[in-house]
Nucleic acid binder design. Structure first.
Lengths: 242, 242
DNA sequence: CACGAATACTGGTATATACCAATATCAAAT
DNA sequence: ATTTGATATTGGTATATACCAGTATTCGTG
């Protein structure tokens, strides 16, 4: 209401110009946007105003920034089908999308209070914690931390030494489950997460939690993903309960 | 990396102060945060720096702003269980959460190219389009636009005159379906949407699309929700396909 | 040619200032 | 008691300036 009667703010006009350049494909994926100073000069505004425009484009998910390097056009979203997460990577491959997975850390820990609560196990239970970074065409997309109950791991994979790093780099435990309770919400990235994902800290992203259970409903593992907001898209099929 | 070795930026320290005030419950839901000028004075910084801090708190979803009124503490998230959306309102009521639904618009239109594509019907097919605003304790939370194929509506509700506004105000067509294909992603709010939701335009929010089908897989209706980002939380149960 | 230093450029932070338009408050006039 | 109008406060926009710390390039030296 109200202000829309007046002319649009200067920086919004610049945003529109920049967006037009992107949708018209003058600028392609991962190409650099003009710098703050360049926009300031070309549009005859102060650098702060140019900055606001570029930040707005970033906030809309059309661009991402690398500290002191510049701003770049965001690639298309990556769809994550929560119903076929067991073969997420091969599913994407079938659509011609190559997903790279990097194992960042794999440690054995004891359940603290919070994780014991989540997994319904006693405090001190042995757990495996695996952190993986997923990229698409070299572009970091989301980060996953998976927490598996150790003895359940042996139960499902009797032939595999669970501490086999080679194995962990190519497989995930999630496929072992039968149901997954999923929660999706928006939140800002911590500085640590932002660093791995190559974005500025405190940018909004999307968090997805999965509680994976067996057919009897007993917990197997819990995983938490944090996605770059502009890259995330989740799809699912729900059976409507009447 | 890099900068974290140095001391944190001034505005981040202020953000931490404000966040502490919120989590320590010095400030409760919907209470006003200190104004930009007040923060500037109390922390001995320029107004622009105070503003950056308050905007960051807003970006993190802990506060929302009303133009020229101030910034206020965000309420808790509202969970939307996509598996029981047929009785979303009564489900929330069972948890002690009162959801108010307001019918903003209800029109009969003909399918354009895009919607015809989505619903797999010929261009020109009669459709009902209903727009509803959902609030919790008077606080706008999400906006829904539902597009129903008119003749399917009569099929499922033979006893109800579909153009009965009274009915539309209290019921939704979605429950008529059996499966729903759901897509969730983050995007910024258009100025129109922002106005209905009472937030500043171009703030990030979460969009949820639902394609509701009958048991044979034929389309019944398509609905699109846009949520205030800090209010949104989606939960679902997936059956893992092997 | 290879290396390293100087240089230009980038975004991030921070201040000071100015004006606008919407809102809220409160006192004066009716 | 109600309306009106002045005033203070709010966030939104915009400029000009300054400095910092990484990054990329270039150019001269060995």
């Amino acid at each position: 209401m109200s202000r829309k009667s007046a002319t649009a703010p200067l920086f919004r006009q610049i945003v529109d110009d920049l967006k037009r350049m992107i949708v018209d494909s003058e600028l392609r994926e991962h190409m650099a946007l003009p710098s703050e100073r360049a926009v300031a000069e070309s549009h005859n505004v102060s650098r702060m105003t140019a900055r606001r425009a570029l930040e707005a484009v970033e906030a809309e998910g059309l661009a991402y920034s690398k500290d002191r390097k510049g701003r770049f056009v965001s690639p298309n979203r990556l769809d994550y089908d929560v119903g076929s997460m067991a073969n997420f990577i091969s599913g994407a491959a079938a659509k011609g999308i190559a997903i790279e997975m990097e194992l960042l850390q794999s440690v054995q820990i004891e359940a603290g209070f919070e994780m014991a609560e989540i997994l319904s196990v006693p405090v001190g239970t042995q757990l495996y914690e695996n952190t993986r970074l997923f990229r698409r065409e070299g572009h970091a997309t989301f980060l996953e931390t998976e927490t598996v109950i150790a003895y359940r791991c042996a139960e499902f994979l009797p032939n595999v030494e669970p501490w086999n790093t080679e194995y962990l780099q190519h497989q995930r435990y999630s496929p072992l489950g039968y149901t997954a309770d999923i929660v999706i919400r928006m939140r800002t990235l911590s500085p640590d997460e932002a660093e791995f994902l190559g974005v500025m800290p405190y940018q909004p992203g999307i968090e997805q939690e999965q509680m994976v259970r067996d057919t009897l409903g007993f917990a197997i593992c819990f995983s938490r993903q944090i996605w770059r907001g502009e890259m995330a898209q989740f799809s699912a099929r729900a059976i409507i309960k009447h």
